[in-house]
């Protein structure tokens, strides 16, 4: 094949491997993922609710509308890849994988327990559907680049999606990867930032300011799209738009709220890495009905 490596199109793979749910249903899925997140973390007694809740709409859109994947065949070679770089948000990934059929929803209750396939941070050797082992922040974009380069080398048309946190835009490795992806014109790679404005200690602008973020990525040679990361329609249209951009990688900066959907967790650093008590969990689940 001599055709331009950038000329792949999503239509190359037969249809039917996308769930393609309409936006209204995706909103319901996102709420369901949020309920799983609360229950899982409360049952485990530890974990990271804030950054899992902020990413729920993005994962709902990807797993239940955008991505081609076969939950019964997690290693299908033409699957679209989702790489969770911010590994502490494992609960939202596990919830999306369970709801799309990679394993049972009941298994979510085993999160972080001895012998569970659902480790505290994603482990690609253990969990079906987990593409990358993570937990040390700032490594996912490099991994995603490798996956996208392989698609180019193998003439495959799958898309690679990477989800970063805004905190990860502080790690040097993220910017090394940013240079690389632009240099090699990786337009089959779509990166998203769950830009919830917070990290562990508090607000990102107070801990280590990364703004203006879009301009930084633009200066690094990227196509950037800013959206409301809780608006399913905006997420879907940004991804559609990203797919038409040739010769450049795209980054979708999804402005989100840490702890989204649970009033007392929203913008609250206390719930970055702390499990809700059973009363708090009950209250949260009520809000998420």
């Amino acid at each position: 094949m001599t055709e331009d490596v950038t000329a792949f199109s999503a239509q190359a793979v037969p249809p039917g491997d996308r769930l393609d749910l309409p936006p209204a249903q995706l909103e319901e899925i996102a709420r369901k993922l949020r309920r799983h997140i609360i229950s899982m973390i409360a049952t485990a007694g530890s974990g990271h609710p804030g950054g899992s809740l902020s990413a729920a709409d993005i994962l709902a859109a990807l797993y239940f509308h955008v991505m081609r994947h076969r939950p019964q065949d997690p290693h299908w070679s033409d699957r679209d890849r989702f790489i969770l770089s911010k590994g502490h948000a494992a609960p939202v990934l596990y919830a999306a994988l369970a709801e799309s059929g990679y394993f049972s929803v009941e298994e979510l209750g085993s999160l972080r327990k001895m012998g569970s396939r659902l480790q505290g941070h994603p482990d690609s050797k253990l969990t079906p559907g987990v593409e990358m082992s993570a937990g040390s922040l700032g490594m996912g974009l490099s991994f995603g680049i490798g996956v996208a380069l392989a698609a180019r080398l193998d003439n495959r048309s799958y898309w690679t999606y990477v989800l970063l946190s805004d905190g990860e835009c502080e790690e040097g490795q993220t910017w090394e990867a940013a240079l690389f992806a632009a240099h090699f014109k990786l337009d089959n790679l779509i990166t998203m930032v769950d830009c919830n404005g917070m990290q562990l200690t508090g607000f990102t602008r107070e801990v280590m300011n990364i703004e203006p973020l879009s301009q930084k990525w633009q200066a690094f040679g990227w196509n950037t799209i800013d959206i409301d990361g809780h608006d399913i329609k905006q997420i879907l249209s940004a991804i559609t738009q990203a797919k038409t951009k040739k010769g450049k990688p795209t980054i979708i900066i999804a402005h989100t709220i840490k702890g989204k959907g649970v009033s007392f967790m929203e913008n609250n650093a206390k719930f970055h890495g702390k499990a809700p008590t059973s009363e708090e969990a009950a209250k949260a689940l009520q809000e998420l009905q």
Partner: peptide, 26 residues
Amino acid sequence: ADLSPSTMTHFFAQEFPQRFFDCGLE
């Protein structure tokens, strides 16, 4: 590096804000 409430260097940060630097995720 964005872990002072866990490493407990936040005690020092409160007492000596001029001599404490949170490097963020770096």
